[in-house]
Design a binder for these strands. Structure first.
Length: 267
DNA sequence: ACATTGACCTGAGAGC
DNA sequence: TGCTCTCAGGTCAATG
């Protein structure tokens, strides 16, 4: 779930539901999610305050808090995280690890079945992004073709490994890397410096368009256009373009689905 | 430089 | 039905 389009969808969800309400209580049910911030500090910085606005960088969601000093709640969703806003505690979702209780009587749950996420309070988003050594957010308008070419920089890595490397590009994970490579008709193990200028431009365009389109469909594969690979990413899936059976290969120890007919090894 | 593996966690789904 | 096995949309450190 939580790659750039999913996190962007959650950002909009939080933005639409949870801003400008006083936080009455914070219930930390799984302390290990708080890597950098103590439970006491989290409560101190949140209780009596409210969420004011939201930002996102790659797979990281930042929620600005009201108050004198700049401060943000930071959320990462690991592999199985999400958010749910609800009123009745009987609707409290399973695997809720942190609960934010608002004075309005509503609640926001941070969900993480596998507890692989991270939650913290930070003062400075840019400093945080720098500390984590994150690459540019792929949907940042400043991240243009020439910036992408600088990242590629004639390196020898496999295309998929580069797309997924958060230190190079922030936001793309296993599923959307497959989708982007499929749309660009590039084999996942192709060395990135083997791509022609033209294919590289094609790849860049698909990075933007695939993520953008996924967001427009709320990152919900059921709603994706018919030519998208994601809904076919399973054992006996077939290519939505040519009908060939999809193949699987490991890249960076992640399962990659691709069409042997449409995605060639060379550019 | 680059690739792979295991660890961190807790299921969900498949196969028997 | 119940058990066991494999796999899972992320990231980091260690190893070759």
């Amino acid at each position: 779930m939580p790659e750039l389009p999913d996190v962007e969808t959650m950002r909009r969800y939080l933005q639409a539901t949870s801003l400008h309400q006083q936080i009455e209580e914070v219930d930390v049910r799984s302390e290990q999610l708080l890597a950098q911030t103590a439970v006491e500090e989290l409560k101190e910085r949140l209780i009596g305050h409210s969420f004011n606005s939201t930002r996102r960088h790659g797979k990281w969601l930042f929620v600005a808090l009201d108050g004198d000093a700049e401060a943000f709640l930071v959320l990462h969703f690991g592999m199985t995280g999400g958010l749910k806003y609800f009123e009745n505690m009987e609707e409290d979702p399973e695997y809720d690890r942190i609960l934010f209780h608002f004075a309005s009587g509503y609640h926001l749950a941070y969900i993480a079945m596998r507890k692989l996420g991270e939650v913290a309070i930070v003062d400075d988003v840019e400093a945080f992004v720098g500390n984590k050594d994150l690459g540019p957010d792929v949907l940042d308008p400043d991240f243009d073709l020439s910036a992408f070419k600088e990242v590629v920089d004639d390196r020898w890595v496999m295309a998929k490994a580069l797309l997924m490397d958060q230190h190079e590009l922030a936001g793309i994970g296993n599923v959307y890397a497959d989708e982007i490579l499929f749309q660009a008709q590039v084999h996942p193990r192709t060395r990135i410096n083997r791509l022609s200028e033209e294919t590289l431009e094609q790849l860049f365009g698909k990075m933007k368009s695939v993520l953008q389109e996924a967001i427009e469909h709320q990152a919900h594969p059921d709603r994706f256009p018919a030519w998208f690979l994601v809904p076919h990413r399973h054992g006996d899936g077939t290519c939505p373009r040519c009908g060939a059976g999809l193949e699987r290969v490991k890249v960076s120890s992640r399962t990659s689905y691709f069409c042997p007919n449409c995605q060639h090894k060379k550019a």
